[in-house]
Design a protein around this nucleic acid. Structure first.
Lengths: 141, 141
DNA sequence: GCAGGTACTGAGACTCAGTATCATCGTTGT
DNA sequence: ACAACGATGATACTGAGTCTCAGTACCTGC
């Protein structure tokens, strides 16, 4: 079980209202392990009879993403998933089996993109790296 | 204007039939620069009255992706776009302005992921790196 | 040439994620 | 108390992608 507080305080710090529905979405997120889709949260909220509207779930996810406490991943399947994370530039290891994710820092990637920029003549702005594999727990199986 | 032949021969080599609709999709792709979405091709085919069904466009794109002559990109906007490319492992530079893409090799990324695997205990399978920026032609503007 | 099987096709219905609209509600500041 | 504004949920809508199905083109064995 994760901690909903970072989400709530991110809202608060940025001057957004901390309302019941937003708090509820934060708790749904905290109650998940690994990545999840918007649809997952909608169905969670439905099954717990929280009475949160679909639109509110999407709006709140968008808000958290904007506040960098949530990041959107594009899974190889084409689905859009979210993962809670620290508000700093980093990348994600995604377990193909259990869905767990782990943040990793930029490593030497910055050097790599700079070398590439020099070689190709491009001005490289942002990059996105996603790594898929098996977490230590799922390695054996 | 690109060359539709690699697409056609990829089909042929893999034992798929080279039919009129598939050839037409290959030509639509060749007639595009930069990345494009499935919807782009559907509307191209509509405006040229080719009479190709929506489903066929999607099916043919899927086929080309499977044959590794086309790759799917996830743009930051969340859209799914496609780029024609060589059937070897590589990554893409995507111009945010004109949409042009360029293939780049793996650079030192392999070493980087191996180091990461050692450090974290994960077994890293595939990775996906996408770089967004400006191509040499669009740098100034 | 013909018959049978298989690959492929387009039309259309369908599903589902995500967005837009809007009337209402709750908070906050005055 | 009240006006203003942010947030909400219901609902309708859009658009991507999938599925189904009847029909067609093509290949293969006879």
């Amino acid at each position: 079980m994760g901690d909903p507080r970072p989400f709530v305080s991110a809202l608060d710090d940025a001057g957004y209202r901390v309302t019941e529905p937003r708090r509820a979405v934060a708790e749904l997120i905290a109650g998940r392990t690994g990545h999840f889709t918007a649809a997952d949260l909608v169905s969670d909220s439905g099954s717990r009879r929280l009475g949160i509207g679909r639109a509110t779930v999407f709006r709140t996810l968008e808000l958290f993403e904007e506040l960098s406490v949530l990041e959107r991943l594009d899974l190889p399947s084409g689905e859009h998933a979210y993962v809670p994370c620290e508000p700093a530039h980093h990348h994600h290891l995604v377990c193909e089996r259990c869905g767990r994710t782990e943040d990793v820092d930029d490593g030497g990637l910055r050097d790599l993109t700079e070398a590439l920029a020099g070689r190709t003549g491009w001005a490289i702005g942002t990059h996105r790296l996603e790594l898929f594999g098996r977490c230590p727990r799922c390695r054996g199986s």
